[in-house]
């Protein structure tokens, strides 16, 4: 319990420890802490930014997806329409073609009929002349009676 030189020894030791702590302990530790703080802050910042980027990208993706879907739907609709149109057109074409064929056939038939009639007519004229010759027992001058015969034939 005596106060003695220990007092100054203690003070001296105290001063040395404080000096050592101030020069060699405190600065590196606080520097490391500050650096880590900065690093963490940067990391958090980057994470926040990445999250935002992710959100943007997700928005973009869903937008694109929606647009694409719409486009696809549109294309399908167009294709359907187009197909319908083609079918319709084909039907129309077929119909006109059929009609044309029918008309052609009809014309041909008529032509045939007419030709047969002409043939028949010419034959009828010859027959009529021959018949008249037989009846008159004389030669009918075809040239003279041509007009008459023609008239007859046309009446058939």
């Amino acid at each position: 319990m005596n106060i003695n030189l220990t007092l100054f020894g203690q003070t001296l030791a105290f001063a040395i420890f404080v000096w050592f702590c101030m020069k060699l302990v405190w600065p590196p530790i606080t520097a490391a802490m500050a650096a880590r703080q900065k690093k963490i802050a940067e990391g958090l910042d980057a994470a926040g930014r990445a999250q935002q980027d992710l959100k943007l990208a997700q928005d973009k993706v869903s937008n694109t997806l929606r647009e694409t879907k719409e486009q696809a739907a549109q294309i399908i609709e167009q294709a359907n329409k187009h197909a319908n149109a083609i079918i319709e057109e084909a039907k129309q074409q077929a119909r006109t073609e059929g009609e044309r064929l029918v008309a052609g056939a009809r014309a041909e038939i008529e032509q045939e009929v007419n030709r047969a009639r002409d043939q028949l007519r010419s034959q009828v004229a010859a027959l009529a002349v021959a018949g008249a010759e037989k009846i008159l027992e004389s030669q009918v001058d075809a040239k003279v009676h041509n007009e008459l015969v023609e008239k007859l034939a046309s009446q058939l």
Binding site: A13, C21, A32
Partner: peptide, 19 residues
């Protein structure tokens, strides 16, 4: 005790890393 303090803290300070 002072030496323990100094050595302990100095060794931590020497290898202090921001990681």
């Amino acid at each position: 005790m002072g030496a323990i303090f100094i050595l302990l803290f100095r060794s931590a300070a020497k290898s202090a890393t921001a990681g």
